[in-house]
Write a protein that binds this DNA or RNA. Structure first.
Lengths: 106, 106
DNA sequence: CTTGATTTATTGTGCATTGTGCAATATATA
DNA sequence: TATATATTGCACAATGCACAATAAATCAAG
């Protein structure tokens, strides 16, 4: 198991951080599309969430079904402490690399 | 060929942007170690550079050998316009995802 | 009411792409 | 021939990705 987060893993973790309590497959996908401009399939998203959970960077909790058509129980996902730390460090590494480099406008 | 840059690809491109004229295998490796804290093998670096060049994100030019022991010609590498644009967009996607999220201190 | 259609949600799976390092090779000076 | 710097050639592991299948809910005939 490597120490580093992949690019898509980082995007998914950022989506979780952003979504807080309302993070599950569909909202993660929508957030990625809306903010990152990234149209990912559910397969991509759920596979990644599964791997992140296996690494202990994310945990999940099954919600209650809702009384609407198709209201199957959602699997809510959230960052663990380790997950938040890993994300922070990965983003910090990018920031250190980009710091002071002209033409990148962060 | 995917549209998106991997995590290590982005780090390497950032190293190139930072190094400017003096980017080749060894300096890229040193920059990654010094700024990102990432100790990558030369195999990792050269493979990635090769793939980035195949995608047209990077170009290279063989330098002149130097009159020092082991002064074999270096292969200098630089970002193409497309490479710089791809890097900028990839970093911007992260920035948009991270924008306004507490606990990430960018 | 009960059975199939429809809707939201997640899982299973296989393959493509990226990440990684070891060993080999190339090319210079000593 | 030895030694130092630099690059290449693999082989394999990890991540990225989407299609199809499955699950679990409500709706709507008949």
């Amino acid at each position: 198991m490597p120490d580093y987060l992949g690019e898509f893993e980082q995007l998914v973790l950022l989506a979780l951080a952003r979504l807080g309590d309302d993070a599950y497959g569909v909202t993660v996908r929508d957030t990625l599309a809306a903010r990152a401009g990234r149209r990912a399939s559910f397969g991509a998203i759920y596979s990644t969430l599964r791997r992140l959970e296996a690494k202990g960077l994310v945990r999940s909790k099954l919600g209650d079904p809702e009384a609407v058509r198709g209201g199957r129980a959602k699997k809510y996902v959230m960052l663990t402490t380790r997950g938040r730390a890993a994300l922070r460090e990965a983003q910090a590494a990018f920031a250190r690399m980009a710091e002071g480099v002209p033409g990148l406008l962060r």
